[in-house]
Each structure stands twice: as structure tokens, then as C-alpha cells.
Amino acid sequence: MSLRTVATLTQQELLDALRNKWFVAYAIAFVLLCVGLAMMIINSAGYTGISGFGRTAAGLINLVLFLAPLMGLTLGAQALATEREQGTLAYMLAQPVSLAEVFMAKFFGLAIAMSAAVSIGFSLSSLAIIYWSGGTGVDVFLRLLPLTLLLTLSTLSIGLIISAQASKTVTALGLAVVTWLLLVLIGSLGIMGMSIVVGLSPTVLLIGSVINPLEAFRIGAVLQIRGSLELLGPAGLVARDRIGDMTTAVLTLVMIVWIIGGAFVAYLLARRKEFQ
């Protein structure tokens, strides 16, 4: 494994990301929606004070839960599948590079590009808040940034798992959207529904919830901004009850495991498919 090769390929992936209309669309949407939310915070602080701020903070969590996983899953899912379909992956692998180097560069390139988009969105929003309202509420954005980055990268790894197996872009994108829907539904309605119908024990409810990176983010984010406890949901309440002060650390660990473990599984699957 040559770090120089990985760096060269990563640099190329970053340039490719800027040419990718999907990425550009997600980045613009994310930045605009973040700034829009910031404006809402500014306006609501004038009229309704801290209670309005709490509502907007919840809005930010929902925005991240909606857009960041969609971005991570769809861009990750396209990464290898599109190149495989176009023949560009086979061409690159005929060069003096290894699949591990190509794969790492894809992961790092997309991770850096998406992290930059998220960070720019949060930074511009924070600047807007500081400029127009003297900084009230800016801490929400700053506190949520690390968790948002972790969520984005977790879903990128899951997207890469899809991409490692799919031969066509359209298949990969379809699977990514289905996965996104499943993660969103399992995260809220699914677990709650199952706990009522099947009578899940609190421990099973907790594990079933937090292995979903979206739910891990949601619980972690609510705890971070110390929003209303109702926002925690059943799994969050169980987590706070069972794990206590370590909850955020455990949830962070869950997302890190998704990032590293998911990327590793994706690499193994890609290796099996490419070298068959």
C-alpha cells in the first residue's frame, strides 16, 4: 500500500466530486437549508425567545436526519457501481495501483467532499447567526457538527457496501433509497411499532435502535443540545436510563464502528466481485 498513490487518487476523487452533479446538488441543498434554518432561529429568537430556538434546533436535527444519510447513501452507492458500469474501474485497476488503494481513495475523497459540504453549511449558518443575532443559538450548530459528520460518514460506508455489490448505477441508487427509507422507518416507526406489537424488552429495544446510525445520531443530538426529553423517544429514554452519562460516547462509538467496519466490509465485497 503506497500512501502517495492513495493521496494522488484521493485528490482525483475530490476533483471528480466537484464534477458530480449529485454531489453539487446535495451540497447546495444542504447549505441553503442550513442557512434557512439559521434565519428561522434568528427570527424566532426575536419573537419567541428560547422556546422558538428549541423548535428550530429540533428542525435542524430533522434536516440532518433527512439529508445527510441520503447524501452518504446515494453518493457511496454510486461510487464503485458507476465506475464498474462505465469500465473506468477496470481501467484504473489495470494501472500500477491496488484495489485497496483505489477503494481507500474513493472513501477518503467522498468523505472529505461531504464533510466539507456539511461543514460549509454549518459554518455559513453560524456566521449568519453571529452577524444578525449576536450568536444566540450558534452553539447548536457547533455541537451538532461532529455527530452530523459521523452520521454522514456512517451512511457513506453503508452506501459503499451497496456499491461493492451492484453492477449498475440504477440498481445501486435504488438500493440506496430503499436502505434510506428502511433506516428512517426502522429508526422511528418500526422500533416503536415492534415494541408495542411484539413487546420488546427495553434492552432489545435499545440495541435495535442504536445499531441504526440514524437513531444513534438522533438520540446523541437530542442529548447534545439538551432538547426536550420527549424528543428522545423510547429508545433514547432507555439509553439514558441504562447507560447514563456514557450514552453519547456509546452512540459515537456505534457510528465509528459503522464507518470503519462498513468500509472494511465494502472493501472485502468489492475485492470478491472485482477479482472473480
Partner: peptide, 19 residues
């Protein structure tokens, strides 16, 4: 990787790179 360093490869059709 070392072997591919010694080989210049021309495919049947150069793929459609965007760059």
C-alpha cells in the same frame, strides 16, 4: 502492482472518463 508498472495497457475501448 509491480507487474502492472511494467505493462502499458490499451483496452478495447478507452472508457468514458468525465475528466
Amino acid at each position: 502492482k509491480d507487474v502492472r508498472q511494467r505493462i502499458g495497457y490499451v483496452p478495447q475501448l478507452m472508457p468514458y472518463f468525465d475528466l
